[in-house]
Design a protein around this nucleic acid. Sequence first.
DNA 1: TTGAAAGCGTTACCAT
DNA 2: ATGGTAACGCTTTCAA
Lengths: 362, 362
Amino acid sequence: MAKQRPTIRDVALAAGVSGPVVSTVLNNRTESTVRVSPQTRERVERVARELNYTPSILGRSLAQQKSYIVGLLLSAVNSPLAAEVIRGVQDIASPQRYSPMVFIHGNPEEEAAEFERSLDRRVDALIVDTFDTPADAGNVEAYRNLASTGFPLVELFGMSIPDVLRVNVDFEADARRATQHLLELGHRRIGLVVHEHYHKKETHWAGWGFYSGYRAVLEKAGLEPIVIPAPAVTAPGDGLAFIESGRYAGRELLALAERPTAVISYSNRRAYGVVQAFLSEGLKVPEDVSVLGYYERDVAVLTDPPLSSLCVAAREAGQAAAKIAFGIMQRKPVETVAVASEWMPRGSTSALSASQRNTIRP
Amino acid sequence: MAKQRPTIRDVALAAGVSGPVVSTVLNNRTESTVRVSPQTRERVERVARELNYTPSILGRSLAQQKSYIVGLLLSAVNSPLAAEVIRGVQDIASPQRYSPMVFIHGNPEEEAAEFERSLDRRVDALIVDTFDTPADAGNVEAYRNLASTGFPLVELFGMSIPDVLRVNVDFEADARRATQHLLELGHRRIGLVVHEHYHKKETHWAGWGFYSGYRAVLEKAGLEPIVIPAPAVTAPGDGLAFIESGRYAGRELLALAERPTAVISYSNRRAYGVVQAFLSEGLKVPEDVSVLGYYERDVAVLTDPPLSSLCVAAREAGQAAAKIAFGIMQRKPVETVAVASEWMPRGSTSALSASQRNTIRP
DNA sequence: TTGAAAGCGTTACCAT
DNA sequence: ATGGTAACGCTTTCAA
């Protein structure tokens, strides 16, 4: 039997004041029509502490018609990022008394059901993760409708919902940073392993953005892009297919007449496959070829050597999404944000060596 | 401007009945003092549908003094499992109109703060993940206190909170299954890579349990255990240390006079390290040595060959925890549960070959 | 079989 | 500067 929690009435009674006074005091409400004297204030605060009073969000919610809940509609596909995203949301939401409620789905039908559920829960805002999901048209329409009513709906890791503010990975800036890094290490032949449809800007904006950043930096340096298209992976599954795609790209790369001394790979899983292809040909990483990975954080650590890479800053993304959501709620000006990835220097890249120079241009 | 949602009053008015009738109908309340005729029932249902009415959980919560929220207090350490656990909880909670609210923490102070927050949110139940956290005494005490009031608190992946129902990994059964599998493949020299303190039953119950299951099966088969203690890993961090620990164990194993033809490794990260050690000595997996991993799901897929392993059934664990929580709430008999892991057959184990037989006993 | 009234804990508004 | 009162949307209980 849980002890009966004290209510605002108990505090009011014990402090010899009325309910509203307690409410005003404990919420530090200054611009209220209710003004309280310092003595009263102190007394109320003391009594509240003595009684171990914490206001019930249930009552508050009903009175204010606010749930103080921010919903997170997440795809099971990118589970690995979920915890960090939630944490980011929490970072921003907590100070505003908000808490994240999570709705995870594995397919469009579940997605629709969980979306409904989130509305039934009367979430005050909704962060929708459309990453890696071939967005279902019906669901997108539903999101769009909701957003068009002014409801704070933020898209995360996706570009599926029209006319909605979102948080994206800053593919182009990330690619620039990656390329720049390798340039600074002295590399001049820098390859890019990327989704084979990277040039289809409309549908593969991520790959396109990444490629654009890569090319921009190389062009500025007067160097030629060397793109190695990696086969598309249909089933995201557990990632095996991605690795296989990387192995394939790795072999392609080795077959080039003039082999790059460094490679950037979109997707750390692909990078892992690339490394495997190199190793199985007797090449050493990074001595013979530097490999710089991108995106997923979880894999980067597992190669030998561990992959230097840029990893999605999931927590920051969560924070950014929450900021936008609260911005909309509070009618502050906010806009779509691109979050730069996090630099994880490890052992798979190194400065261009003399022997590499020789190997390349004999 | 979000459209005003219809309230129960709107429905009542439109259907020409009173609020309680609507409430009774829409909740299919049979054992209520309020009985409604089939016609009325149908009319109410129709009107509700027409108005697109969905009851507000805010009002219901206040009236029933139930938040319909199950809290999940998770450690950031095992982020990878978070999404699956949440999903499992969702599986059980949703049909009961409950939703999971997630509270993630990175250290004991945050843990305490998030715990408080969850109580402030008036969660009706709390699932506490103490995995891998050297449980903070103060927090444990707080959990215990709460649980002792009859509050539905369930410990997940840990044994830190006394007198509390929990969901655990079934280490012993898992080890038995793993060992049995290798026996059935014909192996007779089966090694176990496990935390160096595995024999300290009290503090390292996981390792102990796993070892026990392993030994039990071997004994029954009249075989000798071959334990290779892996160095303790202090900083869980990103897992690099675990892999290093596995590499170390792998080298130890290779130095044995009579080398096992198969190894079970507690922790897939360690298994990964073991594989690396083997490969770097020119041994092939599974041709020369079979390697069977355990526990984390995320890594198992990344080795070459991918690791056959038993992986923690996180979603099932979440389900089990939720079931216990609801059981306590509804005063049904429930008890601590051990969840068996999931069998993920992949490429790192194979039947004992003739050549292996020869190598071992020349 | 139904309606009416009270109450859940809080906040907002209007009096004093 | 403070208190009273109504309201939020729903459920529960009692009366009809």
